[in-house]
């Protein structure tokens, strides 16, 4: 199989799908041209993520990465959510194929983009270095898989 059981579980039964009407923060990353967009909605109370929902346009691993990432930050302080790395998302999914690693990068970026939105709305200034990951090109992680077959 292309994907681990964990990935298939989160793809077939994604957690926290949807939107939050009165979200305190929204982060969107990716672009349709490259085939994946992730959007995260956060409800924040006293610096803690009370609720999180996502919408994703993308492949199976993009949906699974979004689902897993929301589970990993739900109920956590913002500072902890900011520390979530794409490696941690990948590990929690029992791995992703090499050419799908960018999906976990997008998940990390979507969370950071949402938290950034929250700080901006609240007028809180933070070290821009915290959001450095947002400047990385997730699509650059879209490594071409030399073993992939051309279309029959």
């Amino acid at each position: 199989m292309l994907y681990s059981e964990k990935v298939m579980d989160h793809f077939l039964h994604p957690r926290n799908v949807g939107t939050i009407e009165d979200a305190d923060a929204i982060g969107e990353v990716g672009n349709a041209k490259c085939g994946d967009i992730m959007k995260m909605y956060l409800k924040i109370k006293e610096g803690t993520i009370e609720d999180v929902k996502f919408e994703t346009f993308g492949c199976g691993s993009a949906i699974a990465s979004s689902s897993m990432a929301t589970e990993m930050i739900k109920g956590k302080p913002l500072t902890e959510a900011l520390g979530l790395t794409n490696q941690a998302v990948t590990e929690a999914l029992d791995g992703l194929p090499a050419h799908k690693l960018h999906c976990s990068v997008l998940a990390e970026q979507a969370i950071k983009a949402a938290v950034k939105d929250y700080y901006e709305r609240k007028g809180i200034t933070v070290d821009p270095e915290v959001f450095a990951a947002l400047n990385e090109d997730a699509e650059a992680a879209h490594a071409h898989d030399p073993t992939a077959d051309d279309k029959a």
Partner: peptide, 8 residues
Amino acid sequence: SACTSGSL
């Protein structure tokens, strides 16, 4: 889709 073609 790109995700099934193994390319960008």
